[in-house]
Nucleic acid binder design. Sequence first.
DNA 1: ACAATATCCTGCGAGC
DNA 2: TGCTCGCAGGATATTG
Length: 243
Amino acid sequence: MPELPEVETIRKQLQERIVGKKLNGKRITAVRRRAKLLIIDFVDGSSLVFHLKLTGQLLFNAQPSRYTRKVFVFDDGAQLVFNDLRKFGWWKKVKSFKEIEEKLGPEPLTLTLTVFRSRLVKRPKAKIKPLLMDQRFIAGIGNIYADEILFASQVQPIRRAGGLSLVEIKAIFQNIKKVLKAAIKAHGSSSQHYLDARGKKGQYVRYHKVYRRTGQKCPRCASLIRRIKMGGRSAHFCPQCQK
DNA sequence: ACAATATCCTGCGAGC
DNA sequence: TGCTCGCAGGATATTG
C-alpha cells in the first residue's frame, strides 16, 4: 500500500477539501492519519477508517473506473472515489477509533530515541527489516521505506536488533524521520499504483537509492544493488556499504 | 521468539 | 500469439 508518506499526502489534501462537509447527514470535523490508516472524523465522535493496502486509491471528485469499489457522496455533491485493483483495501465505520488504535505501535514521526531503543532491546533476535515493517513494533513503515531507511543508515536488512551498535541505532532512528519527511515533501512514491487524492503521482521514486534498483550501481559506493527474499518480500540493499 | 509460507486479488512484463 | 512464471507499496493466520 501506500505507506505513511502516501497516506499523509492524501490526508492533507482531503483535510482541505472535505472538512465541514456532511456525509450521510453527519458533519466532518477532521481528517487524520494513524500509521497507514486514514481516518475521517464526524461530529458525533464516530469515524470512517480506510486502509489502502497495496493498490487502494482515494480520489476526490474523480470519475469512477472499472476498479472503483465505492463512491462516497457529500451533501454538496462532491465525491470521494475509492479504487482498488487488488481488493485488499478496506473501509469501515467505527463508533470510536480506539477500537483500531490498540494494536498499533508508536508513530514514527513522534517516536523518541529512548522509546525506540527500549523496544529494540525487547526483540534482540529479530531481524531489523521485518521489525521496521512490523506495525506493532512501529506503525507506518512498509517495504519501500524500510529499504531506504536501512540504506541511509548503512545497515543490512538481515542484521539482528540485538547486534546493532548505539551508533547504528541512532542512525536508523534519525533516518526513519529523515526519509519519511523527505518522502512526504515529495508527495510519496508512485512506484506502481499510488495516486494522491488529486489523482497525481508522488515524486519520491526519484530519490530511491535501493528500492527496485537491483543490479544498478549504489549511489554511495558504486557496488551493485542486491535483492534478497525476506519472509516473502523483496529486500534491496548495497552489500558493500551497508554493514 | 522468530521464520517461512499461504492467503486474499488482479495485472504486467519477461521468456519460451 | 499465447502460455507460464515471478513480481507487485500489506497484513494476518498457521505451521515449524
